[in-house]
Design a protein around this nucleic acid. Structure first.
Length: 871
RNA sequence: GGGUUCGUGGUCUAGUUGGUUAUGACGCGGCCUUUACAAGGCCGAGAUCGGUGGUUCGAAUCCGCCCGAACCCA
């Protein structure tokens, strides 16, 4: 082994070998229980950022742990390729507009671009040591995949989840496509509130408040709160919209906020969702004034062709000139924006494809999923219950899954493809049948494509082998809480609709990663960290530990470079432990038969066994933070600080039999520690594990540690802890008194309250460099009770409201007196005006023992024993 | 406005069903070359557990209110 730990040398080497050996392949042979992960297919941005890394680390910890548990793990990786950002990028890179080339050509350019983006992200995944089975890679832009998306569409059409209708939809004027509710993000922006006078037709004028004068020509009514006294008796009056001249009526509706502006608002088709509701409820006319690219149409007269912003300014100016603009003031407003390009969205009424949202069905299924942490279910419930509109799935774009449908040129009949025709591109292929309505054979292929969530929301089905194999829920979905309303929601909806099943048994939800300063990472804030930078400096193994320790899954974590530092130190420590062990282990070590274990060996193995059990429970519960902490504690404290020091004597100078017992226990402890750590630091543990004698192949195909404890656990733990405690106390004392740690001691005497008979002091004696004698009775020194230590769990329940007085009296009492009483079997105590009797177990007496002079001696107190050291 | 989560030494974080002296890390101060390890060891300082009221013999933990932060939704 090299003298020092160098992740830069280790990590690339194993990455390559794992790929060569196909270590992470899923067998699918049904001999072992399965553990299937519905890995997020990320959008190929070309950059796997630290927030992604968090989720992938969680999945990788789980995948690796489950492999050690003997599961047949399927950890696939997909790519959610379709979408607008790629189209925009391709247009930029090639300096074209998507209509400049054919759909096919444009699509090809998008695919080419996406491939290079994917490669970059795979590189980062590899460096971070993620253990996907690349035999199960999928890309939603491949026909095998989007054919499945089409199939899901066809099946849902048959089940009447899919329908086509004209309905107001969210529309991004920059992307020139419909978008779903989930793709609208509300942003707080500073706007202007205009107060506009509408002249009365046969009555007084009214002043309305609006932030959108550009929509005046789309105004179809004016509304007020029915309880608003200012407008009492005026409902039903008519007004003339300034500039455009249409007549509108005043209606009353409780949804109007009388506190806002003048309390009167105009209803346009459409300014916002509320307008849509009113429009439907009061059966108002439709006056569309916006075009698909966000300009005013011919209805706006002189203002035709202006953008929304231009029109706002010009119409406001025109109102001012006409004397109809009464006021303007700044106002905070929440604006719905396209989540991809940040452009304020409009609402247009368009014929689109929709998927029916069955809230009850979705919630029923969502409740069956185990959400980790539990409260993440509330996120989904909230969103689901608040859904107002069905899911619009058609997009007026190119790079996406085509909607497999045609329209009859004669009668407009809509024909949806049948399953055996898929995958199909309706823009270049036509059905071979005549229209069932009119007999025409002229078909026009649908040019609309599907929302990319239609692709990604069947990922669980896809990884489970749908539609060829019978579907049963996969084990795990891991994702961020920011996409619960989209990806989790849609996946549950689709799996319920298609298979009447839950998609996954467990949904593990990760938080967001913040920078060191606690703020969201951003390049402009200067708190941005790229995973590669960290790997470069400290290695992926340390990075992964830092991620695991950042906080419990579900909570947002602050990325801390100091956690990477501490992880790197821990790995260095373990490297040195391994290097030390390496010098003492040989080929025969694993095969030692019936080792002659001493107390120290039984102790470390018992400890190991309980740690392995506790860590396993944490890993099962996805408490990676707790698991890793326990492993570190064991390795550093128990194994390195205590056990190694105790067995050095035997390792260096012991007789073969006892030396081999120590070697064997050391081997077991080290090998087991490595296996427990391997999900967190796969490169490091592989490097050392493969070097250990008796190992065959990769640590990542090994088994979770288990110790055959055929001795009394309590006794082993008690004796071992005592020995370890005494040894480290004496070593600490040596350090304190400036003595060399290997300095010889004349003799050590051990006194304890309990039974020390039969305690194995061999290792202890070697560790402290002096003979150890177990002494019965009291040491030949003065013994001074110094403190009464009450046990509140005894005193509390027994004395209830008098417990406080008892505790007070005990702290006042003379410890020597209490001790004397305690030895008689009961303790009588005056508390105020009464006397109470305490059982002996209600108190512990802490005593200090002092040498009575004569011989030079140090008296050391440990948890369970008094140690006399004669230097 | 509604929902969710959270507030613990300078910083980050643990704390299971309420029970002695509140965990660990980083940082800080001091001491130490010891047959794995100075990227180490040992020792130390540093927290009225956001505030407040309550339940209880006993609260970081349970409940109410207040203050503050973050996220989601309107």
């Amino acid at each position: 082994m090299d003298d020092s730990y160098d992740p830069g040398a280790i990590e690339p080497r194993w990455r390559e070998r794992w790929a060569d050996e196909d270590v992470y392949r899923y067998e699918g042979d049904e001999k072992r229980p399965e553990y299937v992960i519905d890995t997020p297919p990320p959008y190929p941005t070309g950059n796997l950022h630290i927030g992604n890394a968090l989720g992938w680390c969680y999945m990788d910890f789980a995948a690796r742990f489950q492999r050690l548990q003997g599961k047949d793990v399927l950890y696939p990786q997909g790519w959610d390729c379709h979408g607008l950002p790629t189209e925009v990028k391709v247009e930029e890179n090639h300096d074209i507009h998507r209509t400049d080339v054919s759909r096919e050509e444009f699509r090809e350019l998008c695919i080419e671009h996406t491939e290079s983006q994917i490669d970059a992200m795979k590189e980062t995944m590899g460096r971070l040591g993620f253990s996907q089975d690349w035999n199960h890679e999928f890309r939603t832009m491949d026909p095998e995949y989007w054919g499945k998306t089409q199939r899901s569409f066809v099946e849902m059409s048959e089940e009447e989840y899919v329908y086509r209708d004209e309905h107001p939809v969210n529309w991004c004027p920059r992307c020139e496509t419909a978008i779903a509710d989930a793709e609208v993000e509300n942003e707080d922006r500073e706007g202007t509130l205009f107060t506009i006078r509408f002249a009365g037709v046969e009555n007084d004028p009214i002043e309305i408040a609006s932030t959108r004068p550009e929509l005046l020509s789309a105004c179809v009514a004016v509304a007020v709160d029915p309880d608003d006294e200012r407008y009492e008796d005026r409902v039903g009056e008519s007004f003339e919209v300034p500039i455009f001249g249409q007549e509108v009526e005043l209606i009353a509706d409780e949804e109007v906020d009388s506190e806002f502006g003048t309390g009167a608002v105009m209803i346009c088709t459409f300014g916002d969702k509320q307008d849509v509701n009113w429009w439907a409820e009061y059966d108002l006319p439709l006056r569309t004034v916006l075009t698909e690219d966000g300009r005013l149409n011919e209805r706006a007269g002189d203002f035709e062709g202006l953008t929304v912003d231009e029109a706002k300014a010009e119409i406001a100016a025109a109102l001012d000139e006409a004397g109809d603009l009464q006021d303007r003031e700044p106002v905070e407003q929440s604006v719905g924006c396209c989540w991809r390009c940040d452009t304020p969205i409009e609402i247009l009424s368009k014929e689109q494809w929709f998927i029916r949202v069955d809230q009850e069905e979705i919630l029923e299924k969502a409740r069956e999923v185990e959400w980790i942490p539990e409260h993440m279910y509330a996120r989904l419930r909230e969103w689901t219950e608040g859904m107002e509109w069905d899911w619009v799935i058609s997009r007026q774009r190119v790079f996406a899954t085509p909607i497999p449908a045609w329209f009859c040129e004669e009668c407009g009949y809509v024909h949806v493809a049948s399953v055996e025709d898929l995958p199909v591109k309706p823009t270049s292929e036509s059905p071979e049948q005549a229209c069932p309505e009119c007999g025409s054979e002229e078909w026009r292929g649908e040019t609309d494509v599907m929302d990319t969530w239609m692709d990604s929301s069947i990922s669980a089905l896809h990884v489970a082998g749908w539609p060829d194999e019978e579907f049963s829920p996969v084990q795990l979905r891991e994702q961020g809480h920011d996409i619960i309303r989209t990806w989790a929601f849609y996946t549950i909806l689709r799996t319920a609709a298609l298979e009447d099943e839950i998609p996954w048994e467990q949904a593990l939800i990760n938080g967001m990663v913040f920078g060191e300063d606690g703020n969201k990472m951003s390049k402009s804030r200067g708190n941005f960290v790229q995973p590669e930078e960290v790997v470069e400096e400290h290695g992926a193994d340390a990075f992964r530990q830092a991620i695991a320790l950042g906080g419990q899954p579900g909570s947002d974590i602050q990325f801390q470079s100091k956690e990477v530092t501490s992880a790197s130190r821990f790995l260095t420590k373990l490297w040195n432990i391994s290097r030390f062990s390496d010098n003492h282990l040989d080929e025969d070590t694993p095969e030692v038969d019936a080792p002659a274990y001493r107390d120290a060996d039984r102790w470390i193995l018992t400890e190991l066994d309980s740690v392995a059990g506790a860590v396993e429970a944490d890993m099962e519960a996805y408490r990676f933070d707790a698991a890793l902490r326990k492993i570190r504690e064991f390795v550093w404290h128990d194994l390195a600080d205590d056990y190694l020091e105790l067995i050095k004597g035997r390792l260096y100078e012991g007789r073969p039999g006892e030396r081999d017992a120590a070697r064997h226990a050391l081997y077991t402890a080290l090998s087991s520690s490595l296996r427990m750590l391997s999900p967190f630091s796969p490169f490091f543990t592989e490097e050392i594990y493969r070097d250990l004698p008796g190992t065959d192949g990769s640590i990542h195909t090994a088994e979770w540690p288990e110790v055959d404890v055929d001795w009394d656990r309590e006794e082993a733990t008690g004796d071992g802890e005592l020995i370890a405690d005494v040894a480290s106390t004496i070593r600490g004392w040596k350090s304190d008194t400036g003595m060399a740690l290997n300095a010889d001691l004349d003799r050590i005497e051990l006194y304890a309250d309990g039974d020390l008979e039969g305690l194995d002091t061999y290792d202890l004696s070697e560790a402290v460099n002096g003979p150890v004698y177990i002494e019965a009775g009291r040491p030949d020194i003065e013994l001074v009770p110094v403190e009464v230590d009450p046990d509140q769990s005894v005193i509390g329940p027994e004395f209830r409201d008098r417990a406080g007085a008892v505790l007070g009296a005990l702290s006042e009492a003379d410890p020597a007196e209490i001790k004397a009483q305690r030895e008689t079997g009961e303790i009588e105590l005056d508390i105020g005006d009464e006397t109470v009797t305490l059982p002996p177990e209600a108190v512990e007496i802490r005593e200090e023992r002092r040498a009575e002079g004569g011989e030079e001696v140090a008296v050391l107190e440990t948890e369970r024993a008094t140690v006399l050291v004669f230097p």
